[in-house]
């Protein structure tokens, strides 16, 4: 797939990622690196990796982003959440020396044939913006708990106690949007 996807109104991260996926655009990768590498390093150190290892993990994650770009589907994941998944997998691999069991891929993920529906992409971006705004409004202590939960510092029972969620409403909107899409994708599931 080499046709340029129309990207009017998409976030710059999504535009970079689509250029990487569809044109193997190294300049776009450079921009994505400048944006995410420092965030990943901060995240990985906060999540408990020794400082000396942090840049190795950043390097692995960014290389994986380049190599697995064909699996990126902007209707189903923001660039940030896609990179978040890659970073978590890599860290579990490095710190716990085990591979996190992963769900079966949907067929569309396997075949990399994903003509993005611009409306779906923008809806997901808007909902993610609202989620971010909701996070920004949290009291510092609540915000801290959310960060700790998604950095992997809390057990499931601690998460249940800690995140009596003001986030819940907005997260469930994202969930509903993704669920609708999921139903459309259902037929694509592997037999």
């Amino acid at each position: 797939m080499t046709d340029k996807t129309p990207t009017d109104g998409f976030s710059e991260q999504t535009v970079w990622m689509l250029a990487i996926r569809d044109q193997r655009d190294k300049a776009a990768f450079g921009k994505l690196f400048d944006h995410y590498a420092p965030r990943l390093k901060g995240f990985i150190i906060r999540a408990g990796a020794p400082r000396a290892q942090a840049e190795d993990v950043v390097q692995d994650v960014m290389l994986t982003v380049w190599r697995k770009a064909h699996l990126f589907d902007p209707t189903r994941a923001q660039v940030s959440s896609w990179i978040y998944q890659i970073a978590r997998n890599r860290q579990i691999d490095v710190i716990r020396k085990e591979a996190r069991p992963m769900p079966e891929a949907l067929k569309a993920e396997d075949e990399g044939d994903m003509e993005p529906d611009a409306g779906q992409v923008m809806a997901l971006e808007q909902e993610t913006d609202q989620l971010r705004a909701a996070l920004d409004k949290l009291a510092p202590a609540q915000r801290e708990m959310i960060e700790r939960a998604y950095l992997g510092e809390l057990s499931h029972s601690e998460i249940r106690e800690a995140t009596g969620l003001p986030l819940g409403t907005i997260k469930s909107r994202i969930r509903l949007g993704l669920e609708r899409l999921r139903h459309e994708l259902k037929d694509l599931r592997q037999e």
Binding site: G42, A77, S81, I83, Q85, L131, D136, E147, Y150
Partner: peptide, 17 residues
Amino acid sequence: AAQETVGGVVLETLDSA
């Protein structure tokens, strides 16, 4: 996917190094 979206927002907004 919704949980990973929150994770992505945390990654996007945490202090960088």
